[in-house]
Design a protein around this nucleic acid. Structure first.
Lengths: 229, 229
DNA sequence: TTACTTAGTGTAAAAAATACACACTATATT
DNA sequence: AATATAGTGTGTATTTTTTACACTAAGTAA
């Protein structure tokens, strides 16, 4: 019913679960709150949706303000709107996740005002979270677990050039289980969306692995949108 | 960012894609609008979220008000919030879908005030829809296509006792393709979540088929939540 | 009794998933 | 130069799953 537009107090926010991978661990970005309620608690970064922004634009802006990153794959996945989720009033929040390759060059730009600090914390050892943010995170993880099996999102967590072992590592972390090396390589290569490069890994003290690149064009041609990793 | 609660004008609504199955066709419930904007257009039924309702509660209430039905499987699947999706102001809407067995006993209760009438229309022949409702519907169909492959939602569209042919028919309609009878039966029976009854179909002018029932307990024990139809 | 309509059933072939172990190669160490 | 170390890279056999395919059985209607 959309023909009446009553004047209502309702606040609409976006919270982001930013998954980051540094080559070793899967982490998420959390901020330490500097204000009540939940002062000193860790929370998911988020913000209010602006009046003239689309939801996706808003999510991108928030990510940019918090990390300085642009062009990151973000996806809306659920709305949380329990009337009592925020102690001070009704706030409906939309959850987005993003996948980010950490380390290397770029540092996070200092976080905006409302937090003491921001940190990437490993998902294996998360603190208690403010509001219903644990629930939001849980659902986000569940979502990418499902999605990584059918869509090429793993590459978003890796540098442009990566080894098959690194790729397998990402799958293992997200899915939370070990995979067989030979079967994994057989399958992933058989899709034909990886381009084997003439380059090798550098700076390792053992046999250097071959580097690969995800071939977006080929992927789009072959599958449109779907695949089964 | 949830510690500040500015006074903002924003309207938050829920729109429902109600899929119904009458034994023959897959339909959705549409209302014919009686007010501007989009007067005389067909639109998805929806309403404003009340100040003290959870989102799921709100969706259930809206469904009840429109159809008189309770206890229906409903699921939130996406938020639509383009700043210009509603010509008169910012309205963010949450889309829910529901699956409903039509025909038989219950009639729809008369629709509340804001519509001229409501109708179940076959999805194969939908009119132009108001607002961005075509997009909302498209995404909803996509969603149940995906979900019917992994979760036992097909049964929501069928009476409690059903034949395997009816079940196959639902899958074919949702997925939009023909399935092989023998393979379908083999697979669906092999999951062990159907209970074969001692009853047969009645009132048909040909050999009556055996009736089955979906066994929720067994399903829960076997799979928790997942399956692959 | 016959015609009609849908129910119900099995098998063989192909494809996909799984389980499993060792030799190779680059570097670092002595 | 020889050796230790650590991760790379590869093949095959078995099992499971998916696919393709056509006829007989049972009940109703005329």
């Amino acid at each position: 019913m959309e023909q009446i537009l009553p004047h209502l107090d309702s606040v609409f926010s976006i919270d982001c679960v930013l998954f980051g991978f540094d080559g070793k661990e899967l982490k998420i970005l959390l901020i330490e709150r500097n204000e009540e309620p939940f002062k000193d608690w860790w929370a998911l970064p988020g913000n209010i949706v602006g009046p003239d922004e689309s939801l996706d634009q808003s999510a991108s802006r928030i990510l940019y303000e918090l990390t300085g990153l642009r062009g990151i794959y973000m996806e809306q996945y659920y709305a949380f709107g329990d009337p009592h989720r925020h102690p001070q009033g009704r706030v409906i929040t939309l959850a987005y996740y993003a996948l980010i390759r950490l380390g290397g060059d770029k540092e996070l730009r200092p976080i905006s005002t409302y937090a003491k600090r921001a940190n990437w914390l490993p998902i294996t050892d998360l603190p208690k979270l403010a509001f219903d943010h644990q629930k939001i995170y849980d659902k986000g993880l569940e979502k990418i677990k499902r999605r990584i099996k059918h869509q090429p999102i793993a590459f978003e967590l890796l540098p442009e050039k990566f080894t098959l072992t690194q790729l397998q590592h990402v799958y293992e972390l997200v899915l939370g289980k070990k995979l067989d090396k030979r079967n994994f390589r057989k399958k992933i290569v058989s899709f034909g969306v990886l381009k084997e490069l003439d380059e090798k890994q550098k700076g390792v003290s053992y046999r250097a692995a071959t580097l690969y690149r995800f071939d977006k064009r080929k992927y789009a041609k072959l599958f449109g949108k779907e695949i089964s990793f």
